[in-house]
Design a protein around this nucleic acid. Sequence first.
DNA 1: CATTTCACCGTAAGCGGTTACATCACCGTA
DNA 2: TACGGTGATGTAACCGCTTACGGTGAAATG
Lengths: 343, 343
Amino acid sequence: MPTGREIAQLCGVSVATVSRVFNQPETVNEETRQRVLRVAKELDYRPNESARALSTKQSTMIGLVWDTDHRRPGWRHPYLQDLLIGLKSALSAHGYHLLMLATSGDAREVGASLADPVGYVNMTRRHHLGGLVLIDSGSDAEAFGTFAQSGVPCVALDVAVEGPRATYVTSDNAGGARMATLHLAGLGHSRIATITGPPGNEPSDARVAGYRAALREAGLAPREDYVVSGDFYRASGIAAMQRLLALDEPPTAVFTASDEMAVGALLAARAAGLQVPRDLALVGFDDIEIASVVDPALTTVSQDKPGFGVAAAKAIMAMITGAGREEPVVLPTRLVVRQSCGS
Amino acid sequence: MPTGREIAQLCGVSVATVSRVFNQPETVNEETRQRVLRVAKELDYRPNESARALSTKQSTMIGLVWDTDHRRPGWRHPYLQDLLIGLKSALSAHGYHLLMLATSGDAREVGASLADPVGYVNMTRRHHLGGLVLIDSGSDAEAFGTFAQSGVPCVALDVAVEGPRATYVTSDNAGGARMATLHLAGLGHSRIATITGPPGNEPSDARVAGYRAALREAGLAPREDYVVSGDFYRASGIAAMQRLLALDEPPTAVFTASDEMAVGALLAARAAGLQVPRDLALVGFDDIEIASVVDPALTTVSQDKPGFGVAAAKAIMAMITGAGREEPVVLPTRLVVRQSCGS
DNA sequence: CATTTCACCGTAAGCGGTTACATCACCGTA
DNA sequence: TACGGTGATGTAACCGCTTACGGTGAAATG
């Protein structure tokens, strides 16, 4: 690999000039600029990123904090791939890369994991990362606070964090839930239940709020026994549905806070001899791939999955260059009507 | 952030000694070693990775080459998340990180994309990456050859590459296909068709080979009109199934090279008035999440998804330290029997 | 007692960039 | 003619760490 020095020698200029050609092109004479550029191209010169990072104390890498929570080993992010696609492509546009940080095993490092956010923040400094993107791993929301407070630019996904240089992006969970519930009400249902995520989980709480708001708007009385909580997993959807069906007056429609739980609800309903959507209308949330494949296909609230990544990238870039905090981003949601609601 | 120099001063030793404490502990006196370690811990010292990489010409990062092929915008890796989990955790154990390389937009870089593997290889050198992990993005297999030939340690997933420091990991595709087909034969089917992936795609070709081998073993005559090709997508499964159903003597069982296509086949069969598994037995490949959710649940050949990541990590670490080539890894597959085959 | 050996440690030269500061030629102006 | 200003470039320090090399004192050897 050619170095700046070699380019300089071949061009008869100093290394400083070569460096300037790339970093402050306007300060160098047009003619010599061209000369350097030509030689650099011929030799296929690329500035060494390690040296550059060392010198500028700033690399072109963004850390990706994503751990599958060890307390929930089976946990899967519902749309990691789409998110990464959006994130990566938007960061690429700025010449930035994504670093998936190791979480343990480095002899020089205390075990870093979400339980120990400090380890990650140290990583950030060690590698001169520009910032962190925090992907919700199912819990550990409190750890995100530590990240946000650390002063490192960071943007969290689906967790509202606050910090000197932190922000977050989330979907319009309340709006989506409201739409879904209103849709069910519009179909004539008056006994509409909801299966929520874990209490305290922000997207889940927002969805519940949206559900309640819709009931009010539709003039329906809220019933506490129509709000049962799950944990976004399929199994919890089954359990929750069973509880709902055991009520004296079971609901005729259910809005679930995730597609996975909706599938669970579907299975439970079917097991109980109910037909969806004839006997029970179902609406999910997420619009993951499964939603279009189950039978009946799931009506669901669709999130802008690559949009998450793109918005996160934008926010982090803004914080890196702008040195301030950014406004949180709320992505619009969209109701995708399929068969499970019976419309 | 404290530097090595500060530690050195506080301990009354030289920076060289501090460095040795971390890199060649056995060469430094036990007592001073402890002293340095203690002070380092107090100050929460971490060696700067940029400086270290610059000096050693070797970082603790592995490049991840994964682009959604622009010619197939909708393409999704069937189990990226599991793969990443395995990859990341295995690399973490060695203190290595995963760098998702940007593919374009860097002003200093020609647009790097799979169409231009050279850009990636340059990235490798710029960042002193230890090696590359190549994730099949649906096509671009020929680009992988360029990576493998570049001399950079690299391991490809599901694409057989050859190079001075290259290897690959793949599933036992032939074995899995054979198992699946034999299972169908064992169920009494004699008219067993297959829906393949794109011709030329290695896993697909291997699966076809396994299918043929199984027919031979079962004493069934191969029929060329029973081999129709798709592209792993669901839509192609639908089309392929329609072609099979249009035959004079339609198959009673179909082995498809992917679960997505199996779902397509299922839909096509249902649309044609057939009941699965009563009128048609179906076996897929991959065991993605959808497989257990469709109705009837899909019998399928399951791949060791995190195993891919772990094996890749092992191979790349071996090549980094060992400086040679590694043997390709073939992961075992396993038949998961559910309802779609009617057993 | 002189000499070799060896464990331990310091000195200093890199690694490949960035950038504050100095330099220099050249210009316009008083 | 002397002088301050300006644009283009060179000089050299620095970023923080690694490591070849050499030096030191103590122990081992003859």
